[in-house]
Amino acid sequence: MPSLTQSNIGGPPPVHPELPPGGGGGDGDGGRGSGGGSTRAASMTAIIVVMCASFMTFGAFLSAMVIRRGLSNDWHKFALPRILWYNTIVLILSSIAIEAARRMLKRGRRSYFTPLWTIATVLGTLFLIGQFTAWNQLAAQGVFLVGNPSSAFFHVMTWAHAAHVVGALLAVIYVEFLALKYELGTRGRTWVDASSLFWHFLDVLWLGIMALFVFWA
């Protein structure tokens, strides 16, 4: 990287060395990243940025919850169904499986990747099924979205989390599809890293939601 000297501050954009002299990039004229596809680094940056945006969404729910609880006297804690604990274990196991699969692929042990990734996919699906069961069990107890702000926030946050899991699961299934077709090229490996990173994020997010409702809400 060139140092910031007085002469180059405010100078013309220092363009990629492969560019023809005399101008910036743009317009697909051969600047950095020409060729149409996004780079691996850009994809990883993007997924981190998406995680920040998701974090802000849940942060908004959390701050709304803190204020709503502080303002009212209609807040009632309710018993969490036991299946939520099983779901937590399933999600942690899926995170471990997905990380193991990613590391195996990185070390070139390709034959371990597909089974481990498949286990993660199945566990992710099981988690979603478990969440549906939990909502049904709560309904059977008389705990609905409407009626109690605590249960309302529980439903909103778990629905939003499940929606994120569905999105991540689609990416995981796409990787599974590529792996089964033996088409995990450079692009596929970027999908592996990006989707596994997001999966861990959803895991941590879920632990946060559980902690919130077990200890406070």
Binding site: H16, G25, G26, D27, G30, G31, T39
Partner: peptide
């Protein structure tokens, strides 16, 4: 992209 010396958006 022009100002950054990139061919296109990411």
């Amino acid at each position: 992209p022009r100002q950054l010396g990139a061919a296109h958006m990411a």
